[in-house]
């Protein structure tokens, strides 16, 4: 019998702490598989965020740094500038990247910093218990928008991928989803492409991954994937937003 599929060695044996049905685990696996398939474990440095993925350094089986909230792109910049031969990636959520770290991500992108950013957008602050995020949809109920996000009061969700794609610095930006197997395969391709972009020295690459948060959305895992497909994708259209050949 041949192995068709098994857990990559780029993930450690530590059980993931994520809630049942949380798609962070899928995204971790795709990133780890990409590093594994590209044969770059021995020179990859991952930068973990603050948020649900704060313990990412326990899961990715490569050298890791843990950054302050939103600062992962700055940490990655320092790391990459010291050892340009390293492959440096950040793994950040929407609160981390699109709110408190909006300056760091924008400037890393516009500098064309030769790093890869995995941006997990689940439209909510997960780790702190389900507060409104910069990516929370209009009308979406969270613990700090209990009547639904009112754009008149707190503005509109940020489309990070489209925003960064307007800059000259980035070499590859795409938005993908992990709500079904087909989209998971597409997501994998994009993530691999992002790392290949860095390997080729082309500059900044970012993959925004739409992700489900069943616990804080107050849904079953199955309902949350459906909700992602029906509500998040219209707000955050999938596809490649920028690609420099």
């Amino acid at each position: 019998m041949a192995v068709v599929y098994e857990k990559t060695k780029l993930l450690t044996d530590k059980p993931l702490h994520y809630c049942p049905g949380c798609t962070h685990g899928i995204i971790h696996r795709l990133v780890a598989e990409a590093i594994d398939e590209l044969g770059i474990q021995n020179r990859t440095i991952g930068i973990a965020p603050v948020g649900c993925a704060v313990f990412a350094y326990d899961y990715f089986n490569c050298d890791m740094m843990e950054a302050a909230h939103g600062r992962a792109p700055a940490v990655a910049t320092g790391c990459k500038r010291v050892n340009p031969g390293n492959i440096v990636f950040t793994y950040q959520g929407d609160g981390d990247l699109a709110s408190i770290g909006a300056a760091e991500i924008t400037h890393a992108a516009t500098r064309g910093e030769n790093i890869t950013v995995i941006f997990v957008n689940n439209a909510i602050y997960g780790m702190t218990g389900g507060q409104m995020a910069p990516t929370t949809l209009p009308g979406q109920v969270t613990t700090t928008s209990p009547y639904g996000r009112d754009p008149k009061l707190c503005g509109y969700p940020i489309r990070i991928s489209e925003m960064l794609a307007t800059l000259d610095g980035p070499a590859f930006i795409s938005r993908v989803s992990v709500h079904d197997v087909k989209h998971i395969l597409d997501a994998k391709k994009s993530i691999k492409k992002a790392f290949e972009t860095q390997l080729a020295g082309k500059g900044f690459s970012l993959v925004e991954v739409l992700s489900a948060c069943p616990t804080n959305w107050g849904m079953t895992p199955q309902e949350s994937l459906k909700w992602l497909e029906q509500n998040m994708i219209p707000q955050y259209p999938l596809g490649i937003k920028k690609e420099v050949e």
């Binding site: 019998m1 041949a2 192995v3 068709v4 599929y5 098994e6 857990k7 990559t8 993930l11 059980p15 993931l16 994520y18 049905g21 949380c22 798609t23 962070h24 685990g25 899928i26 696996r29 079904d180 197997v181 998971i184 395969l185």
Partner: peptide, 18 residues
């Protein structure tokens, strides 16, 4: 042995052989 289950699993608990 399509491995859809393993690709969907958030916790990488499934190994598929064929």
């Amino acid at each position: 042995g399509c491995a859809f289950c393993a690709r969907m699993c958030p916790d990488a608990v499934i190994k598929v052989e064929k």
